[in-house]
Amino acid sequence: MFAFKSLVANQGFATRQKTKFFNVGKVICLPEIKPTRSELIKLKKKIKLADFGHSLLKKKRDGLVKEFFATLKEAKKSKSDLTENYLKAKTAIDLARAVDGTATVRSASFALKPKANITLETRNVMGVIVPKIHSQHRVEAFHERGYGVIGTSGYIDDAAESHERVLGNIITAAETETTLKKLLVAIDKTKRRVNALEFNVIPRMNSEAKFVSLRLEELERDDIFRLKKIKQKTRGN
């Protein structure tokens, strides 16, 4: 963090630099920095590192945005599939309840085995950890669902099958939407870092380096002037 000290506006260098630093009324703030050669070397190193970091973060941001749009396509597709299949499943179960009766449909649903076996893994996208959901879920054949074949109807099959499809869609949608959310947070974070480097950290360090080098030059000129004066005085004597 940088601490700032106040200087009066009409004092030498500060007046010339007033546009580059915080200007509060007539008071200008300058960074608390020692105008030494070692400080300049340190600053130059920091600037180089910041530039490198900036270009890396920019590449990361671009990569994340690219990945985001690819995932967005998938998410849109999975969402529309989910909506479409859900509507179909709702119609199928409503029809089954109407034709076979709620008691029969609910009774058949009691016989279904809980099967959605899900394993959760992670995937690394440019340093962002996103979930990868594996499920052994599949649409079962009517004789493998758990209920008897003779006492059930095609309407119940349709309702069960369409809901199995919806379950598959929910798993896919959960994966893509979580990835999307995580990518969005990561993009936002990276964007803020890139902007901070581009518009705050690097310009500030540049101006600090400029300030230090100008100060050093001025000190050099002071020294030369002083030396010349001493030389004149010694020649006059």
Binding site: R106, S107, F110, A111, Y147
Partner: peptide, 22 residues
């Protein structure tokens, strides 16, 4: 039908009321 509902309900661990109402 009732015997099947009863067995199914107990197979999946449903509550008493859920089974009886069917």
């Amino acid at each position: 039908l009732n015997a099947k509902t009863f067995l199914r309900g107990r197979f999946s661990g449903q509550g008493e009321e859920a089974i009886i109402s069917q």
